[in-house]
Computed example of a mutant assay.
Amino acid sequence: MSLLDGIGRALVIAPHPDDEVLGCGGTMARLADMGREVHVAIVTRGMPPRFDPADVDAVRKEAKAAHDLLGVRETHYLDLPAAELDGIPHSRVNEAISGLVARLAPDSLFLPFIGDVHVDHQLIFTSGMVAARPRGGAYPARIYAYETLSETNWYAPYVTPAFCPNVFVDISAVLPRKLGAFQCYGSQVQSFPDERSVETLEALARLRGSTVFRAAAEAFVLVREVG
């Protein structure tokens, strides 16, 4: 029995548009192909004057195209201020994520890794764990942390938490869809050797796959599982 066999409804929480594809795009595609529900929550929205509203709207169109390609059931926008989560009461972040988790009741939750260099990622991981507290009978049975290129590996792994994956999902058959979904985010794709490039994303998938003798894989840290 694989990790995917136990998932009926998954919720991927992304701090910003494209994080979900970078970290979980292949896993989302496989789950959708199996007929499972895949939901994505994009927590933040770029706010003026730092972000141009036209650019924000364009990125949302890119997200729709990417999610359609992967088979996402529904995309949820929580509209908290991007790159400013540390400037608002943390209770707002908790409430937004907890409310969605309570409404969707996912059995599996995918969160950004707490050791990512971006503070938004760190705070959203913490709020995701708050939302998934094992109280009552309904809470996510499985919590996974995913890696995000240019965030997970750019902190200080000997000082801050290091991403040491212990769960791997074979995405060999759906890697082209993952890469295609990333390419839908035309405003975010950079030219190699930038980490936010198609070539680097494929290289990471090949590396993670080779780790477990597969052609391509996504890697996760299992945070908690209740059987």
Rank of each mutant, 00 (worst) to 15 (best):
G46S: 01
G46H: 00
M47K: 14
M47H: 10
P48H: 01
P48I: 03
P48C: 00
P49W: 03
F51C: 09
F51Q: 09
P53H: 04
P53E: 06
P53F: 08
A54V: 13
V56Y: 00
D57E: 14
D57F: 09
V59G: 08
R60S: 13
E62H: 04
A63H: 05
K64T: 15
A65F: 11
A66H: 03
H67T: 11
D68R: 09
D68L: 10
D68M: 06
L69C: 02
L70S: 06
L70P: 01
L70H: 05
G71N: 06
T75I: 11
H76A: 02
H76E: 00
Y77D: 08
L78C: 02
D79I: 07
D79E: 15
L80Q: 01
P81R: 08
L85M: 06
L85G: 00
I88A: 04
P89G: 06
P89S: 03
H90V: 13
H90K: 11
S91W: 12
R92A: 10
R92H: 14
R92G: 07
E95I: 09
A96H: 04
A96I: 07
A96P: 00
I97A: 06
V101R: 02
V101C: 01
R103S: 11
R103F: 02
L104R: 00
A105S: 13
P106S: 05
D107E: 10
D107Q: 06
S108M: 10
L109K: 00
L109Q: 03
F110S: 08
F110M: 01
L111M: 08
L111D: 04
P112S: 02
F113R: 03
I114T: 12
D116A: 05
D116E: 02
V117K: 15
D120L: 07
D120H: 07
D120I: 07
Q122P: 07
Q122M: 10
Q122T: 14
L123K: 02
L123F: 04
I124A: 08
I124P: 03
I124D: 02
I124F: 06
T126S: 15
T126D: 15
M129C: 10
M129I: 15
V130N: 08
V130W: 11
A132H: 05
R133F: 09
R133E: 05
R133T: 09
P134D: 05
G136P: 06
G137Q: 12
G137H: 09
G137K: 14
A138L: 15
A138V: 13
A138H: 15
P140R: 04
A141H: 13
A141S: 11
I143R: 01
I143P: 01
Y144I: 10
Y146V: 05
E147T: 05
T148C: 09
T148V: 15
L149M: 12
S150W: 10
T152K: 07
N153V: 10
N153F: 13
W154L: 13
Y155C: 12
